[in-house]
Amino acid sequence: MSVAITGRRVSAGLNQALHDLFAGDDRLFLLGEDVVDPYGGAFGVTRGLSTAYPDRVLGTPISEGGITGVAAGLALCGDRAIVEVMFGDFITLCVDPLVNFISKSVTMYGRRLPMGVVVRCPVGGNRGYGPTHSQNLQKLLFGVPNLQLLELSPLHDPRRTLDRALAGGEPAVFFEDKVLYTTPEYRAGRIDNCLRFAPVDESWMLVDADDGPADWVVIAPGGLVPRLLPAMRAALVDDEVLTRALVPDRLWPLDLDPVLPVVGDATRVLVVEDGPAGGGWAAEVTRVLYERLWGRLRHPVRILQPPCAVIPAATHLERDLLLQSEIIYRILAGGDDG
């Protein structure tokens, strides 16, 4: 189940996107722990920025809540600010400024105040970091007025995602699956000799092999792409199951309208999310699909999420708990009836 590797890694693309953003915006700041050179952040994503822009790329004390508030003050004065949180698990420390101040300020003062703040956070497991450095906590911030939730994807140009986030004046949290950093980014619509992709609109990417009728439509955020693509490819090659995947770079606000025709044409629908069940993105996607496509869906929508459990540190235990390519493949190939 291998996928051909092409081009640069996702972290290099993200790093280039940040360099481009700074080159074009002299009132853009970046704040975070250990983001300065030569380290350039725990995952190297900010490398080179502090050397090029020492006054605006600030290594901070271990104060996630404080620096998120600082970003808000910069934004209120007309600047833009990116906060890097070293591990997405620590987004809990940023929730007060995000929920009670930054997102609310866009409209609570009776006029529109642009709040150009993006909080970037590496999320997800499969790296052996253990219970407090491996989670997908997107659901904690779901449905907050004026707060966008974005997710890094190897199919999307991160420059475009960040541009949209900063230009709209609504703050955003950018979830970056940390396994993506070391995986290839895909460009020019080609994944390998089997799979291709194309934009549906500015957020949704559609991945498939050809125009034939789809046995499955899989809806999944960007972090799952490296596990989803091999499953799709194997199901096609080994089982002649055609899967069409829909991958957004924005989780919230959720707009399914552009992809409803694709979903409605599929025989079966699978929604996959790395966060555990109990509210969240997959449940919301599924709710909207039932509301909009009732009568057209041929089977119940299938949701795949890991069990609601603390993520173990031991590599084999972590692997067993979290979603892997094999379970997605088994569902697509019809070998797992859930």
């Binding site: 700041f29 809540g65 404080g66 620096i67 998120t68 508030g69 600082v70 970003a71 808000a72 003050g73 910069l74 934004a75 209120l76 004065c77 600010a81 400024p97 101040f101």
Partner: peptide, 8 residues
């Protein structure tokens, strides 16, 4: 912290 951002 918000005031500190403005000060910055």
């Amino acid at each position: 912290p918000v005031a500190l951002g403005a000060a910055l």
